[in-house]
Nucleic acid binder design. Structure first.
Lengths: 333, 333
DNA sequence: CCATATTCTGTAACCGCTTTCATGAAACCG
DNA sequence: CGGTTTCATGAAAGCGGTTACAGAATATGG
């Protein structure tokens, strides 16, 4: 591999000049600059990133913390792929790479990895049990963006959907369809989306003048089976609900099965709204009405926020991005 | 951040000794080693990876080339997530990180990124148009693993499913169900899975003594809509097929819709087998019979192969991993 | 035309770690 | 017990860049 010294020798300039050609082009005469670039091209010169990072302390890499282990090998984010596409695209445009951290999860594993690699920033995509290590990291001043979980720090912020608003829209929609006994299958309350969607449900109920009833709330874990179980629980009491708002599409689809097993028709007997708009939602008959999230926007918004907080920007937390949701009406309502 | 010099000073040893403690522990007395480790712990010392990479030429990072752009923002690998989980897990265990390359696609973009970062190896997950840059990279001696596409080089190999065998099993199964006019919705022939599944289809037909008929072959692009269109084409002739082998589940589901639209019953009028066993397959009624691939095995096999080819292993291409497939019988047959 | 300000370029220190080579200490041995 | 080996450690030279500082070249102005 051609080094900067070799290139300098061949171009008959100093290494400093070569370095400037690449990093501060306008500090160099057009003539020399073009000459150096030409020779660089001939040599196939590529500046070495490690050397650069070592010298500058900035790696042009962003860490991605993605907790695969949380639910064993089966754990899947509903739209990790779209998020990655959004993230990668936006970061690439800014000349940053994405490093998937292979650190021991929990504790300070990610923090250590961030230091070792001189990461410029870090993005958290995970289920979101509150983690003191995340708080420390964010407090340390490293630019941090978390998805669907809160985080604060001099250069920290988060991206999330308008979970409250989306949930309210779902409930309002069911109400508009004439339903009055509206149940919910909530997500885990320790997660943000779980808590906020439940809050939205309550809020809209009271806005509509409907009572909030404990027996109309079942909690799941966002996965299909839990939706199935929750639906069965909701059907147990004498007076069954005539509508259900499930806080996630997977749970909604589980609920759909439970309803079919119980011999109930959807939407005639029970109307159903989900949340997320995963690919499946459109395909599972009769088509799941759901609150759609803007999936790639998650990634791009995260990338944008992160980039905005990168030095030399002042250490000001970027305002959180709350992405709008959109109600997609299909066959279940 | 504590540096190695600081640590050396505090532990009252030389930097060389500290370095050895971390890289060649047995070159150091147990006494000194433990002492250094203790002080390192107190200081929260973390060796800097860039400096390490610069000094050794090895980055402990593996590049991941994942072509997001191929089909516009909507392009999705049927099970990218599982592959990533497998890859990440296996590589982590070996102390390697995964770098998602933000390089201009095509040409030598990835090759350049690999050099700049001193990548230890590289993994290709993409749609797989033949790419001279990949060939060059592989030829250069950089450990390379490609998924579902061929690649050769001193340290190159690939991982793929037993596409031929899987396709044969699908066709044999349809035959066993009494079907004789078996059509196929093939994938793009320029892709490996597309070509091999078609080959398997032909092979099994002839093994069964059935004729291969051009009019029973329609080509799609692995996506849902193309399956729909292909199915309509297959239904056009007077004598319609009584079974269809679709080379991908998405296409199979598209075909399922076309069949429903045509008023045909599945499996009574037309039996259907897919390939992949995506999540949807189990959920779309009446349940799609399909050839399942071992999804996380893709990732782990790729990681294992890569690790096996990493220096100081001899520059011998690892034998390709051909993962077994498994026929999952559901409602469509 | 000279003094001064402004560009442009070069020298060299440094970023944090690895590793070769040399050295001194300890172990081995006839 | 002196001479070899072996073993543990240290000094210092890189690895390939960036950048502060200084010097040379050019432009500016009186």
């Amino acid at each position: 591999m051609a080094t900067i010294r070799e290139l300098a020798r061949r171009a008959e300039v100093s290494v400093a000049t070569v370095s400037r050609v690449f990093n501060n082009p306008d500090l160099v005469t057009r003539r020399t600059r073009e000459h150096v670039l030409r020779v660089a091209d001939e040599l196939g010169y590529q500046p070495n990133e490690s050397a650069r990072t070592l010298a500058t302390g900035r790696s042009r890499m962003v860490g991605l913390v993605w907790d695969t282990g949380h639910r064993g090998p089966g754990w899947r984010h509903p739209f990790l792929q779209e998020i990655l596409i959004g993230l990668k695209t936006a970061l690439s445009d800014h000349g940053h790479h994405l490093l998937m951290l292979a650190a021991e999860p929990g504790a300070g594993g990610y923090a250590r990895a961030a230091k070792r690699h001189d990461l410029d920033g870090i993005v958290f995509i995970d289920a979101g049990a509150p983690d003191p290590a995340l708080a420390d990291l964010a407090a340390s001043g490293l630019p941090c963006v978390a998805l669907d979980r809160p985080v604060t720090g001099p250069r920290a912020t988060y991206v999330t959907s308008d979970n409250v608003g989306g949930a309210r829209a779902a409930v309002a929609h069911l109400h508009a369809r004439g339903r009055r006994r509206i149940a919910t299958i909530a997500g885990p309350r320790r997660t943000w989306p779980g808590a906020d969607r439940l809050a939205g449900y309550r809020l809209e109920l009271s806005a509509l003048g409907l009572p909030y009833r404990e027996e109309l709330v079942a909690e799941g874990d966002f996965y299909l089976d839990s939706g199935h179980a929750a639906m069965r629980r909701l059907l147990a009491p004498d007076e069954r609900p005539d509508a259900v708002f499930a806080a996630g599409d997977q749970m909604a689809i589980g609920a759909l099965r439970a309803l079919a097993e119980a011999g109930l028709r959807v939407p005639e007997d029970v109307a159903l709204v989900g949340f997320d708009d995963i690919e499946l939602a459109a395909l599972v008959p009769p088509g799941l009405t759901t609150v759609a999230q803007d999936k790639t926007a998650f990634g791009t918004a995260a990338a944008r926020a992160l980039i905005a907080m990168l030095p030399p920007s002042p250490a000001t937390p970027h305002p959180p991005a709350i992405l709008p949701t959109r109600l997609v009406i299909r066959g279940t309502t």
